[in-house]
Amino acid sequence: MSQQLLGHLNFLGAMVLFAVGLYTMLTHGNLIKKIIGMNIMDTAVFLFVVSLGYVRGGRPPIGAAGTAAGFVNPLPSALILTGIVIAVSTTAFALALAIKIHENLGTLDADEIVRRTRSG
């Protein structure tokens, strides 16, 4: 019961965080803020996935060496791990772009960037 509740609590948290991340990403003009928003959104998705696994009541996939019966399918973990890798590469790439944009245009504000690229 408490497990269920905990899972649902995390669901709820994940949803709120997803909304917060998306909101940050869409409403803030600053590129770095957008990137942080994207990260929050990503971690919210990961949290959602992790808590899904928790609700199903599995055990950690690693640790009980040799006892094949004790293994939980390790795929969701791998899914999130990969997700984290992708998130960090995206972040790094986005930051590199942001720095380049700042070097070229001297601003990090999305509207300003659009204005400056259009004008010349």
């Binding site: 960090v88 790094a92 380049k100």
Partner: peptide, 18 residues
């Protein structure tokens, strides 16, 4: 390399392939 580049100049970055 990524962090070094971001901290010490340079821009276009590679991607991480896991």
């Amino acid at each position: 390399g990524l962090v070094a580049r971001i901290w010490s100049g340079g821009g276009a970055s590679g991607e991480v392939d896991e």
